[in-house]
């Protein structure tokens, strides 16, 4: 048999002149971005509803929609870290409710609202830590572990509040007046959301921690092989999700000015849907914070839009679920097509 790699046979194969990487136009870069489809869908839907019902396009109405999306949006932002590393936290809505009610109870008991808020933030991170501990040390899949804590934390809400709404809060305190105020024409919670998007996007895209998160989701085996402290990153991500749920809880408390033990029911599933609609796949590896928040906005646009189309209130939950299914399927189809046409020889 002749030699497998002929010796001087290698002709000058233009080895030394590597081909320039293909340059992509701005438009195609945008279309390849993970957030592209959710942006297009949201804008398209707003314009569509606006075309039929022009009053939908009034600034006050649009601001109102974003305001409603703030809570799920913040929960989704936290989940986008967990989901891009192939974990999930279904308990965020209970964390949201528990921090909200705890802060309200502390304020009612006479604690300075700012200190109560700080305590709620610490509590949120701790609750995330409990989830992390269950997943990390007892080796329970996060889907199951957080399904249990979803129920536990909600149970605590009812136990602490006696099942009653917490009212009689010091509403004249700056905590309430500042957080529910306006700045440059936008409600403060929306500003908080914008700042969070900016900061969390930086963390996701530009810090070593954000790299770790996505690397673990992309190839868990390679991640531990590369010496990435998977356990530590997991704990950090659960605590981040808890902390953000507490932030949402505090904004919710200042917005609603009372604490209902039922608050936030169904937020977890909306947040998970928002993350997926936003472009973070369930298999992880990719994560986008703005996408997740926009996913939440899209869901709110749908719910508000249904009102304009006179869908009976009792059908709106069905319609929302249907929209989630359609949105996620469309996204998956588009992604598969993109992948198919990009598939180069490998």
């Amino acid at each position: 048999m002749s030699q497998p790699h002929g010796e001087p046979v290698l002709p000058d194969l233009a080895l030394s002149s590597p081909v320039d990487p293909p340059r992509r136009s701005l438009a195609s870069r945008f279309l390849r971005a993970n957030e592209a489809s959710v942006i297009l869908a949201t804008v398209g839907l707003v314009l569509f509803i606006g075309l039929l019902h022009p009053s939908f396009l009034q600034p006050s109405q649009l601001i109102n929609i974003v305001q409603q999306a703030v809570f799920v949006g913040i929960l989704a932002a936290g989940l986008s870290f967990l989901m891009s590393m192939r974990e999930i936290d279904l308990s965020v809505e209970s964390t949201f409710a528990l921090t909200l009610v705890s802060a309200a109870l502390l304020m009612k008991a006479g604690l300075n609202p700012w200190l109560a808020a700080l305590a709620a933030l610490v509590l949120g991170a701790l609750l995330g830590g409990i989830n992390a501990a269950a997943v990390q040390y007892f080796k329970i899949p996060s889907l199951i572990a957080t399904l249990a804590t979803l129920s536990m934390f909600r149970g605590l809400v009812f136990a602490l509040s006696n099942g009653q709404q917490v009212t009689g809060l010091p509403l004249d305190h700056p905590f309430f007046s500042v957080l529910s105020g306006n700045f440059l024409g936008l409600p403060l919670p929306i500003w908080c959301l914008i700042i969070l998007i900016a900061v969390l996007s930086l963390i996701m895209g530009r810090t070593p921690y954000g790299y770790r998160v996505r690397q673990i989701g992309s190839n868990p085996a390679a991640a531990s092989f590369s010496g990435i402290p998977v356990a530590r990153v997991r704990v950090q991500s659960f605590m981040l999700a808890g902390l953000l749920a507490a932030v949402a809880g505090l904004l919710g408390l200042s917005y609603f000015t009372s604490a209902d033990p039922n608050i936030g029911g169904g937020f977890s599933l909306s947040a998970v849907a928002a993350v997926v609609i936003g472009g973070t796949p369930l298999r992880g590896g990719v994560g986008t914070v703005p996408g997740a928040v926009l996913g939440a906005v899209l869901l709110t646009v749908v719910t508000s839009g249904l009102v304009y189309f006179n869908v009976p209130a009792n059908w709106s939950q069905f319609a929302t679920g249907l929209v989630i299914l359609i949105a996620v399927s469309l996204d998956s189809v588009v992604r598969n097509r993109n992948r198919g046409s990009d598939a180069s020889e490998s």
Partner: peptide
């Protein structure tokens, strides 16, 4: 192969060793 298919090429070159 022990690389991260979803990450961009540059970040694949520096796992745990990103310059800061």
């Amino acid at each position: 192969l022990s690389l991260f298919p979803d990450m961009d090429v540059l970040s694949n070159l520096y796992p745990m060793r990103e310059r800061r």
